Simulated assay, not measured.
Amino acid sequence: MNRIKEVLNEKGIKQTWLSSKLGKSYNMVNGYVQNRQQPRLEVLMDIAIILDIDVRELIVSNKAIKRG
């Protein structure tokens, strides 16, 4: 799970802007934002650099997920 949607909302950034900066299609970025698919680590690093944040801010800790 990632926090890309939350970070974009916090920064007031649109998915279209991120997809342009990342060089990925809107549909691909939307898949990341909606957690339908997860970006590779290299892409997650690129997103963090573009958004000027620590990559750890984009990841939901496995400790935060409650198991059934």
Results as ranks from 00 to 15, higher is better:
residue 36 R to W: 07
residue 40 R to N: 13
residue 44 L to V: 07
residue 23 G to N: 03
residue 66 K to F: 11
residue 54 D to W: 01
residue 8 L to D: 00
residue 17 W to K: 05
residue 20 S to W: 05
residue 2 N to L: 12
residue 41 L to A: 15
residue 33 V to F: 00
residue 16 T to F: 04
residue 16 T to I: 07
residue 19 S to W: 03
residue 1 M to R: 13
residue 12 G to M: 10
residue 64 A to F: 12
residue 16 T to S: 13
residue 37 Q to H: 15
residue 59 I to P: 03
residue 7 V to M: 08
residue 61 S to F: 08
residue 25 S to N: 09
residue 10 E to S: 11
residue 53 I to D: 01
residue 25 S to Y: 04
residue 4 I to F: 02
residue 68 G to D: 10
residue 35 N to F: 09
residue 63 K to Y: 13
residue 14 K to W: 03
residue 27 N to Y: 14
residue 55 V to R: 06
residue 13 I to G: 00
residue 40 R to I: 06
residue 30 N to C: 09
residue 37 Q to T: 15
residue 21 K to S: 07
residue 63 K to L: 14
residue 7 V to G: 04
residue 39 P to H: 08
residue 28 M to N: 15
residue 51 L to W: 01
residue 49 I to K: 13
residue 13 I to Q: 00
residue 12 G to V: 07
residue 18 L to I: 01
residue 34 Q to G: 06
residue 3 R to F: 07
residue 45 M to S: 14
residue 4 I to M: 04
residue 14 K to R: 10
residue 21 K to E: 05
residue 21 K to M: 06
residue 24 K to Q: 11
residue 22 L to D: 01
residue 62 N to D: 14
residue 26 Y to N: 11
residue 23 G to H: 03
residue 66 K to I: 10
residue 51 L to Q: 01
residue 52 D to R: 13
residue 48 A to Q: 06
residue 34 Q to F: 04
residue 62 N to R: 14
residue 7 V to Y: 05
residue 63 K to F: 14
residue 48 A to K: 06
residue 31 G to N: 12
residue 31 G to I: 04
residue 39 P to Q: 12
residue 63 K to D: 13
residue 30 N to Y: 07
residue 7 V to I: 14
residue 61 S to R: 14
residue 41 L to C: 09
residue 63 K to V: 12
residue 60 V to D: 09
